[in-house]
């Protein structure tokens, strides 16, 4: 009976369309990391990592471990031509200074105003902020990639975030396993739905009301 949702990889594939050529892009941990696998060959996106590298390439081959070449998630990278290295202070100066065009972040909750909560579950009482707060305020565009609901099928798109915030009014676009939703000044706008999902079905799993985009369509990959 349960309808099929899109996989994490398909979410990543859809997010990849949001990264224009030449953009400086920071990918957060989780689904966002997968996005780089789905950029078309020849894409000139420049990847930025808080670990202090620009223009990095693919992950290292299995078993290759160079401790001096990692992304922000601690994954090992390959040495590729055109990389540059810098300290984390400089990496964040780039973020706050408006030099990062798009960041893709995971989320625990996103509010209808674009508030983001992604660093701590209240019942755990302790969490990892990492670089998310800086990315939320500094990147020119914040795209959230996440599952539409939590493991108990509760909406992660909510009127107000109940979890501790990462940033206020910072999210521009949310891509989930069910829909593509824009955070507009008047609230959330449903732009695309996953194959076989109707707007009503998506709304039923979403906290705040969704306005329907005039050109609402099935998600294109």
């Amino acid at each position: 009976m349960a309808k099929e949702r899109m996989s994490r990889d398909v979410i990543a594939m859809r997010v990849a369309k949001e990264l224009p050529d030449g953009a400086v892009v920071n990918l957060g941990i989780g689904i966002p990391t997968l996005v780089s696998n789905y950029l078309p060959a020849g894409s000139s996106v420049v990847y930025h990592s808080e670990s202090g590298v620009l223009n990095y390439g693919p992950l290292a081959e299995e078993g290759e471990r160079d401790y001096d070449l990692i992304n922000a998630g601690g994954q090992f990278l390959q040495w590729v031509p055109g990389m540059s290295f810098f300290g984390s202070d400089e990496a964040f100066a780039m973020i706050r200074g408006g030099h990062v065009d798009v960041t893709v972040l995971g989320a625990l909750q996103v509010s209808e105003r674009g508030d983001l909560a992604n660093w701590m579950l209240p019942h755990r009482g302790v969490g990892n902020i990492g670089g998310a707060m800086d990315l939320a305020v500094g990147a020119k565009r914040v795209v959230v990639a996440m599952e539409h609901t939590d493991r108990n099928d509760r909406p992660k798109l909510v009127r107000d975030c109940a979890f501790p915030l990462t940033g206020r009014r910072c999210v521009s676009l949310v891509v989930t396993d069910l829909a593509v939703i824009e955070v507009a000044p008047g609230g959330l706008v449903l732009r695309e739905t996953a194959p076989d999902w109707t707007a009503q079905e998506v709304q039923a799993l979403t906290g705040p009301p969704l306005a329907l985009a005039p050109d609402l369509k099935e998600m294109e990959l």
Binding site: D89, A91, F92, I95, I129, G138
Partner: peptide, 15 residues
């Protein structure tokens, strides 16, 4: 004890 800091703020506080 723990003081949780945002990463960019930690880097800049040290800088």
């Amino acid at each position: 004890e723990l003081e949780v800091v945002s990463q960019g703020t930690l880097a800049e506080r040290l800088r």
